[in-house]
C-alpha cells in the first residue's frame, strides 16, 4: 500500500479528483472498503491535518481534499452502512453563529474515515441538549470560530451534567488554538488542533472504553 499511499497523497494534494478516484478503485479491488479507509484514507487525512497545523498547507486545500475523500468513501460506504456502526452515537455542531466551515471539514474527514456522525448544523445550547438526549449521543464534536461560542461550551457542559448525560465533548476551532488552556476551562474532554484530530480522539476514546 505504501506506493499507492504516496500516489494517493500526491493526487489529493493536487486536488486531482479523477486520479484520486482511480487510485481508490485500485485499492478497493485489493481490499475491503473499510480496510482501505482505515489504512489509506484516514492516515492521509491525518497527515494533511498535521501539515495544516504546521502551516505547510492551507485550509482551502484541507477542505477540498476532505470533500473529495468524503465523496468517494460515501459511494462504497453509504451513511447507514453496517461498517460505520462500530462506534457509540456521535454528533457534530456549531454553537450559535454561522461559522460552519470548521464543522463541514471535520464532518467530511469523519465521514471519509468511515464514521457515522449526526450533523446538527448550528444550534443554541438548550435545543442542543434536548437533541443529544433524544439521540443518545455519547461523543459530541463542537466547532467554533469566535471566543463567545467557545465559552458557551461551559454552559453546554453544565446543562448536560445537570441532566446526568454522559457525553464526552471534543472541541476545536481558532480560540482553542490561540489559548491552549481554554478547552479545559470550558469543561471539554479533549481539543482537536485540526480536523483529523477528531478521528484520533474518537478512536482513543473507544479504545479506552473497550
Amino acid at each position: 500500500m505504501d506506493k499507492l499511499a504516496l500516489e494517493f497523497y500526491e493526487a489529493l494534494a493536487l486536488l486531482d479528483r479523477p486520479r484520486v478516484e482511480a487510485l481508490f478503485q485500485q485499492a478497493i479491488s485489493q481490499k475491503v472498503p473499510m480496510q482501505v479507509v482505515e489504512e489509506l484514507i484516514t492516515p492521509l487525512l491525518i497527515r494533511l491535518g498535521d501539515e495544516w497545523s504546521a502551516g505547510k498547507i492551507a485550509l482551502s486545500q484541507i477542505y477540498m481534499a476532505s470533500r473529495i475523500c468524503e465523496d468517494i468513501v460515501e459511494r462504497v460506504l453509504p451513511a447507514m452502512a453496517v461498517e460505520r456502526k462500530a462506534y457509540p452515537p456521535m454528533a457534530i455542531v456549531v454553537l450559535n453563529d454561522y461559522h460552519t466551515l470548521g464543522k463541514r471539514i471535520v464532518l467530511s474527514v469523519m465521514q471519509a474515515s468511515g464514521f457515522d456522525v449526526l450533523d446538527y448544523g448550528r444550534m443554541d445550547v438548550d435545543a442542543l441538549v434536548g437533541r443529544i438526549l433524544a439521540d443518545g449521543v455519547k461523543y459530541l464534536l463542537v466547532s467554533v470560530l469566535m471566543l463567545p461560542a467557545a465559552l458557551k461550551v461551559k454552559t453546554l457542559r453544565a446543562a448536560l451534567d445537570a441532566r446526568g448525560a454522559q457525553v464526552r465533548i471534543v472541541v476545536g476551532g481558532a480560540p482553542f488554538l490561540f489559548d491552549s488552556e481554554l478547552w479545559r476551562e470550558v469543561g471539554a474532554d479533549a481539543m482537536g488542533c485540526n480536523a483529523a484530530d477528531a478521528v484520533t480522539i474518537v478512536q482513543r476514546w473507544r479504545e479506552e472504553a473497550a
Binding site: 450559535n96 453563529d97 454561522y98 461559522h99 469566535m146 471566543l147 463567545p148 461560542a149 465559552l151
Partner: peptide
C-alpha cells in the same frame, strides 16, 4: 447581523 451580549456581532444567513 446577529448581536450577542458578550462578543462581536456576526453576519447572519448568507
Amino acid at each position: 447581523t446577529l448581536f450577542f451580549d458578550n462578543g462581536p456581532p456576526n453576519a447572519g444567513e448568507p
